[in-house]
Design a binder for these strands. Structure first.
Lengths: 238, 238
DNA sequence: TAGTGGTCTAGACCACCGA
DNA sequence: CGGTGGTCTAGACCACTAT
């Protein structure tokens, strides 16, 4: 499982940007120069630069060159597809997960709808409360196909579900469709979270898919409004 | 300004997916077959498929092929970088914009911070209320550099600011950094919007940049919570 | 005009999948 | 095994920007 050449070039350039070798508003060397110094063809360099551009590290300008963007502001992506554990690790917060429910059950009609399946099969129903700095901020309600994700335990759910799925089961999580809305808190929300006096709750619904395009997980992540933050980098498509 | 070949191939394939010629869960023809039928090289086909993949239309599977995803669910992107006018047009809602403020002023210290400028210059301060189905739902507060966007009028702000910037001024809007949070409504929010009894408001802050990486606009878009919806398609990056 | 990025090509080799 | 997508190359031509 060796990385591709353009990925390694991307990684190296990201390193140079993040540690300050390449500063904001500086121009990168030209594609031809990069091709020479990395001993790669120009198209390979361009694949690496494409990645940098998509992730908001650089802006390409025809006829001029590629300029480094100021990345200090964005940079912690709740955008994208990242697990709570990965996020908490990155932010260095005192985070704790409390598994308040874990059971196997037959899909409800509502779940069957979400998974778009013709027949109801068994799913794991996982409920987890996320505590940050001693406050219960997030309620995660996960539903996972037991056929694809067997052998769940409380211990796994406390640590990282995604680590188990990817590293133990060897599945590849590939993409997700997400929807953010704001709703009224339910009795369950009020019971399980430290909601204070808020009368709204931010709900992130996700449909998560493997690399063969099968959906294996539906999640509702319910956040106390004052602690919710979503950051995004978007390019205009025409 | 003719489109590139891979863009045209992308457009044609999107057409086939959206009108049902290519249905969800069907496999696309192989890259070699597509190359032949479009009279293009395989790399060019691959650029088109890369776009389809990024936009959530297909999933590529090594050794197997590219499968069409079910796009009926996502498909109206509040994600990305789209103006209110473009969105309203696409959704066919009865939408109306009321310009409640338009003035040129010297940047405040706060704005200078947002624009990361060494010296304060003049900006347009535009306030617009968006009405959907007779309800005042969104308050947009825009700040634009007058040096880059001269000659604003109420009429322009009522129609589409982006159309003016791109089509009349000939500037190219390229990317944005966005942040979604939830705050307490201000007196101004309560005054200008039909907030009902809600005690929170969804705030989308955007820094918007041109293709030469200069920031020209800062926007706060303030939404009544029950009408806010953000849809996203995200691929897992490793 | 020279240098930049944008596109396109034809061919090669590899890793993965299914029969 | 043959067919699929994944990567990489060397070279060509174009559009754009600076000077």
């Amino acid at each position: 499982m060796t990385k591709s050449k353009f990925q390694m070039i991307y990684d190296e350039l990201v390193g140079h940007i993040e540690n300050g070798d390449l500063k904001a508003n500086e121009l990168l060397p030209s594609e031809n120069e990069l091709a020479e110094s990395f001993k790669a063809s120009r198209e390979t360099i361009r694949k690496a630069l494409k990645l940098l551009s998509e992730h908001g590290y650089i802006q390409k300008m025809q006829g001029k060159g590629s300029v480094v963007l100021d990345v200090t502001k964005i940079n912690f992506p709740i955008s994208g597809l990242v697990s709570f554990r990965e996020l908490a690790d990155k932010m260095g917060k005192r985070a704790k997960t409390d598994v308040v429910g874990l059971e196997e059950q037959l899909m409800t009609a509502d779940m069957q709808e979400q998974f778009q399946m013709k027949e109801a099969t068994n799913v794991w129903n996982v409920k987890r409360v996320r505590e940050i700095d001693k406050e219960r901020i997030i309620l995660d309600k996960d539903y996972l196909l037991t056929s694809l994700v067997p052998g769940l335990t409380i211990n796994i759910c406390e640590k990282s579900l995604y680590a188990y799925i990817e590293q133990v089961l060897g599945l590849t999580i590939s993409f997700a469709k997400k929807e953010i809305t704001v709703e009224r808190p339910t009795e369950e929300d009020k019971e399980l979270l430290d909601l204070k006096e808020y009368d709204t709750i931010v709900v992130v619904k996700s449909h998560v898919y493997l690399d063969d395009a099968t959906m294996f997980q539906y999640t509702e992540s319910r956040h106390r409004p004052d602690k919710f933050r979503f950051v995004d980098f978007a390019r205009r498509t025409r």
